[in-house]
């Protein structure tokens, strides 16, 4: 039994990770698969590029065709990176929410966190069409955070309850949806059209500036949420048990909610609302490495990234030359998966 765990305890940091033995292998395989998916996604399209040439171009080696450098480095690579980063953000956000609410069906899209980010960003697009790009993640994060706090406060009744969190979230999402509708109805048709493309969840036309807007957020909040994943283990045992184990429940819950909002907000800000990724990734991750959050968090993050990279690839290839928003693909896959989860839940 002792051999099945891997304990990492850095001397300098007050942290410890206890991973299952299989986690590093799973992570390694996932990284390989993700890299492969990225190369495929970059290589395929209107103008196909062989995989080897893609690799060479990314590393900076000269290739047979000088056009490759432009297509790979300017058009496709940043877009694919954004897709990956967005997936990581949504997956972490979903993992945290599912752990916190102890509900396997929680997802930043279902409880209004994404709706808050959307409203903030749509208002920005519609009311101030000339606003610079880096402001979008900020406003989306602010929107997501305000909504997360609001949900938390409104669900507060001598302590917060997971069920009330979800129901209140659905109610808040309805209000925000109405306000977003208001923006869409009264905005000038061109900016509304742009806002709608953004709302459907797509990484179309994303460039390095979007990578620059997204990755700082990931760089800050990804390590933080990994560090907090141990607390998530305690919290997901239930409130009484967590308190009995000495966890500062409300404080930790608040902190984790903040992480979740930050990740969802940053992801929504660059790619709009891509649904069901935050729902699917943690479940797939759990099937691979089990429910222990220290191993689950990085696994789910990689899976989330992989899902969106693949969805984006499908969205581009499926009806080429027409391009679907990849949010439509994830929704089309995610909704049946959601149904499957509901059915499987009943059997247990």
């Amino acid at each position: 039994m002792r051999k099945s765990w891997l304990v990492i305890r850095p001397r300098l940091l007050p942290l410890s990770f206890r991973l299952e033995r299989r986690v590093p292998t799973v992570l390694f395989v996932l990284v390989l698969v993700t890299l492969l998916a990225i190369v495929i996604n970059v290589g395929q399209g209107e103008y196909p590029i062989p995989p080897l040439a893609v690799l060479k171009t990314i590393v900076g080696l000269p290739t047979a065709n000088p056009d490759y450098a432009f297509i790979v480095n300017v058009l496709r690579l940043p877009r694919t990176l954004v897709a990956f980063g967005v997936g990581v953000g949504l997956a972490i956000s979903g993992t945290i929410l599912q752990g916190l609410t102890r509900n396997p069906l929680a997802d930043p899209g279902i409880i209004g966190v994404n709706a808050g980010a959307s409203l903030a960003a749509v208002s920005l697009i519609v009311l101030f069409p000339d606003v610079p790009l880096f402001a979008l993640p900020l406003s989306a994060f602010a929107g997501a955070l305000v909504v997360a706090i609001l949900i938390y406060l409104l669900a507060w009744d001598k302590g917060s309850s997971p069920i009330r969190l979800i129901l209140v979230g659905v109610g808040i999402a309805a209000i925000l949806g109405a306000l977003t509708n208001l923006m869409v109805t009264f905005g000038e048709i061109n900016s509304v059209s742009q806002a709608l493309v953004w709302l459907a969840g797509s990484v179309y036309g994303r460039g390095w500036q979007h990578v620059g807007a997204l990755f700082p957020w990931l760089a800050v909040f990804l390590p933080l949420s990994l560090a907090l994943s141990m607390q998530l283990n305690t919290l997901s045992l239930g409130e009484d048990l967590a308190r009995g184990l000495g966890a500062r429940v409300e404080w930790q819950r608040g902190l984790l909610l903040l992480m979740s909002a930050a990740m969802a907000g940053a992801a929504v800000a660059v790619a709009g609302t891509i649904g069901f990724v935050g729902l699917m990734a943690p479940h797939l991750g759990r099937q691979l490495v089990g429910p222990n959050h220290e191993g689950l968090m990085p696994t789910a993050a990689l899976i989330g990234g992989l899902i969106i990279v693949l969805a984006d690839w499908l969205a581009r290839v499926l009806f080429a030359p027409i391009e679907l928003p990849c949010g439509a693909i994830t929704a089309a896959v995610g909704a049946p998966y959601f149904l499957y989860l509901l059915v499987r839940n009943r059997k247990r």
Binding site: I166, L324, G327, A331, G334
Partner: peptide, 16 residues
């Protein structure tokens, strides 16, 4: 939750 999920799915398809 079923309703909310379905609404999310339907409205994203509508938007598409």
């Amino acid at each position: 939750i079923a309703g909310a999920a379905l609404t999310a799915l339907l409205s994203s398809l509508t938007t598409a």
